[in-house]
Structures are given as C-alpha cells and as structure tokens.
C-alpha cells in the first residue's frame, strides 16, 4: 500500500513540476516588460536648474517649485505618444486638480514651441533639458513619463507612458486626495 502511493507520487511528480513551471511563466505574460519600477519613489527629487522654454534667461530650480505638489510631465515634440496623451494632460491641467509642469527632453526649443502652438500649451512652466542630464537624474528612459512630486520635493509616483483617463482615475486622483490630506 505504501509502496504504491510512492510510485504513484513518482509518476505524477514531473506533471506537478511542469504545471508549476507553466504557472510561473503564465504569471509573466500579462506584465509589461517596459515598466521598470523606479527606485526614486519616496526619495527626494534630484536637484535641477534648467532654463524656462519661453524665457531661457530664467532658470527654474527645484527649490522654486517646493511648497506645492505638482506633476512633472516629460515630453518632446519628437515623441508621438506625447501627442496622444496631450489632450489628457491639458484636461488635467485645466481641471485645477494638480499644477502641471513640463520637462522638454532632448528637443529643439523651436520645435517645442511650434508643437505647443499647434496643440496648445497646458503647462504652468516648461523646463528645458536639452542635454538630457536632468532626465538621467530622474531615471527617465523614454517619453512620455510623468512624476508626481509633493510639496517637500519627494517623488511620490511615476507614470511610465501615456497619461490615460484610467491612469488619472486609478492612480492620480487617489494620490492627489492623499496629498491634499497631508497639507
């Protein structure tokens, strides 16, 4: 009796291992490999001092934006997905839910200005990162990307890819409620 159960177990063991392996691989299928979790969440935003797009002589520093929470939207006129999310970013900015700042990443200022003229400029201010050094400090690896920075200058959330209505509903609005409760 005991021997028969052990042989039965032995026969079924490869099947169990196989099912376990399939389950492991299946769990990875729905995931987006492009979503790399940022190690910067919960940490202070990197220091930056970048010229404003509309007034290049004016330098915007991290300290200038402290005291309020805001969304920093990384975009470029060369980036097709930025155009896709643009109506949603504009809606978010005009709704007054959260101030929206732009980080113009590795873009020619003339192209950026022409782009804004064509599609509208929703940004409270736009920082120009022509060299892309600040973007590296923020761990940016593609556009669009958006960071939510709280009034103490801590990065609270990062959106990789387009801001969609779902992202606003499920990620941004709940976080904005928390940020409101803090202040």
């Amino acid at each position: 009796m005991k021997k028969s159960t052990s042989t039965w177990l032995k026969a079924i063991l490869p099947l169990i291992i196989f099912i376990g392996f399939v389950a492991l691989l299946m769990s990875g299928i729905g995931k987006n490999p492009r979503l790399i979790p940022s190690p910067l969440i919960g940490k202070p935003a990197p220091d930056f001092a970048l010229p404003s797009l509309h007034d290049p002589k004016r330098i915007i520093r991290k300290q200038d934006l402290l005291g309020q929470y805001y969304l920093l939207n990384v975009w470029g006129s060369w980036c097709p997905s930025c155009r896709v999310e643009h109506p949603m970013v504009s809606q978010l900015a005009s709704s007054g839910l959260i101030p929206v700042y732009g980080l113009n990443w590795k873009d020619e200022p003339e192209n950026a200005k022409a782009w804004l003229q064509q599609f509208g400029d929703p940004y409270a201010d736009i920082l120009v990162d022509y060299e892309g050094r600040t973007a590296i400090d923020f761990g940016v690896y593609g556009a669009p990307e958006s960071f939510i920075i709280d009034k103490k200058g801590i990065i609270r959330h990062k959106v990789v890819g387009e801001i969609t209505p779902q992202v606003v509903q499920n990620e941004l609005i709940p976080l904005i409620r928390i940020l409101d409760a803090e202040s």
Partner: peptide, 8 residues
C-alpha cells in the same frame, strides 16, 4: 545608475 534606474 542603479540609484536612478534601479537594479534593472
């Protein structure tokens, strides 16, 4: 680089 982009 790990500080900015993670272990990835």
């Amino acid at each position: 680089l790990v500080q900015r982009y993670g272990d990835f």
